[in-house]
Every structure is written in structure tokens, then in C-alpha cells.
């Protein structure tokens, strides 16, 4: 029944998808948190940068960003990310750069909404014992903000998992690229579509369930 899978490395393709997702998730969590810190910082220049970044980046289609990393960064500006002669590795790294740049805007907004759920009294009490602005942010405000936005961050992560299929546009051998190839070569298009759809559900469903559980467990009681 599944003989159409023969000769194709479906698992390998999904493994690439998983790698794209995880590396981009870590990157965008870090960059998104820094952006959120900028957006609440007392320095006007940082606030301005954070706001401009988020508003520009989240309004550009992801495909445009990913294609730009390939054509703009690699072809025009000769960015090699340490993989000058290895086309596959280069497009893999470039696509991660694009995913991080894009997803971080959404991570930033999720965290910022979390910051707004932390009562001002928390930051005031922290300032009152002599903590600096950065300490107040990292020790008191962000830990509480994170816990209140695990749900929204799970949505961002699930969207990211599916968004990694855009990497096909610059030739990264992830799941969608393989699916296109198989549909071109095999007759069972519906079955192929179903296999790949199932693959993504297998990746995203447990993520959603686990983070939903975590979000309840870590919720800050007031």
C-alpha cells in the first residue's frame, strides 16, 4: 500500500524539517526576547529600533524574506555563513537566518503582551530593593512574562514548524521539497499529500499538547 514511498528518504526530509524548526526556534526565542527588552527599554533609540523592526518584518511575506536571504544576502552581498562551497549547507543556514528574523517579530510581540500582564507593583518592588533596570527585567518581569505566554509561544512554534516548508523556495531538502518531487514522479498524489500532512501533525500536535500542559503547570499564581 505504501510502496510509493520506496526509494524516497521521507524520514530524512522530516529530520531536516525538525532541524530547521528547532534551530530557528532557539534563535528566534533569543532574538525575540532581546527585541522585547528593547521595546520596553527606557532608551528611546532602542525602543524605536524594536518597534520599527517588528512592524516592518512581520508585514513582509515570509517567502520574500527567505528568497531575499538567498538572492540578496548570498548572491549579491556574498554572505557565506561559513559554507561557501556547499550549496546545500548554505541554503539551510540562510533559511534559518530568515526564519529567525521573521519569527522573532512574533515572539517579541507575544513576550511583550506577557510583560503587560505583570503588575507594575512587581517591577516597583524590585526597583525598591535596588535592582537595576536590566536586573528587574531579567529576574522579575521576563520570568513572569514568559510563564504567561507559553500558550501564545506554542502557537508561534507550531506556525514556525509549518513555515519551514517555505525553505523549499531556496532549495533546502526539507519535507515539502520532497513532497513536490514525489508528486511529480508518482501517481498516488492524494496518498502522498496525506503522508506529509500526517507527518506535520505528528510534529506539531505533541508540541502543542506539551506546551499547553507546561503553561498550566508554570502559571504564576497571584
Amino acid at each position: 500500500m505504501f510502496d510509493f514511498l520506496e526509494g524516497y528518504d521521507v524520514l530524512g526530509a522530516f529530520w531536516t524539517t525538525v532541524q530547521l524548526t528547532l534551530l530557528s526556534a532557539v534563535g528566534s526565542l533569543i532574538w525575540g526576547t532581546l527585541l522585547a527588552a528593547m521595546r520596553v527599554s527606557p532608551v528611546p533609540l532602542m525602543r524605536g529600533f524594536g518597534t520599527a523592526y517588528v512592524n516592518i518584518v512581520r508585514n513582509i511575506p515570509l517567502t520574500v524574506i527567505i528568497v531575499f536571504t538567498s538572492i540578496g544576502l548570498a548572491d549579491i552581498f556574498r554572505v557565506t555563513l561559513g559554507a561557501a562551497d556547499d550549496f546545500e549547507a548554505l541554503s539551510f543556514r540562510l533559511s534559518i537566518l530568515g526564519f529567525v528574523a521573521y519569527t522573532a517579530a512574533f515572539v517579541c510581540e507575544a513576550i511583550r503582551s506577557g510583560i503587560n500582564t505583570v503588575p507594575v507593583g512587581q517591577a516597583e518592588a524590585a526597583r525598591a530593593i535596588g535592582l537595576s533596570f536590566t536586573q528587574v527585567l531579567w529576574l522579575i518581569v521576563l520570568p513572569q512574562a514568559f510563564r504567561s505566554v507559553i500558550g501564545p509561544l506554542a502557537n508561534v512554534l507550531i506556525a514556525l514548524t509549518k513555515n519551514t516548508t517555505v525553505a523549499a523556495a531556496i532549495g533546502v531538502a526539507e519535507a515539502a521539497t520532497l513532497m513536490k518531487e514525489m508528486i511529480e514522479n508518482e501517481a498516488q498524489t492524494l496518498a502522498i499529500g496525506a503522508v506529509f500532512a500526517f507527518g506535520f501533525v505528528v510534529l506539531t500536535l505533541p508540541t502543542g499538547l506539551f506546551l499547553g500542559w507546561l503553561s498550566k503547570r508554570l502559571a504564576v499564581k497571584r
Partner: peptide
């Protein structure tokens, strides 16, 4: 403070 403001986490 009136509202204690203990660090909730």
C-alpha cells in the same frame, strides 16, 4: 507597599 508586591514567581 499597600499591596505587598511580593515577587509572585
Amino acid at each position: 507597599f499597600q499591596s505587598f508586591n511580593l515577587f509572585a514567581h
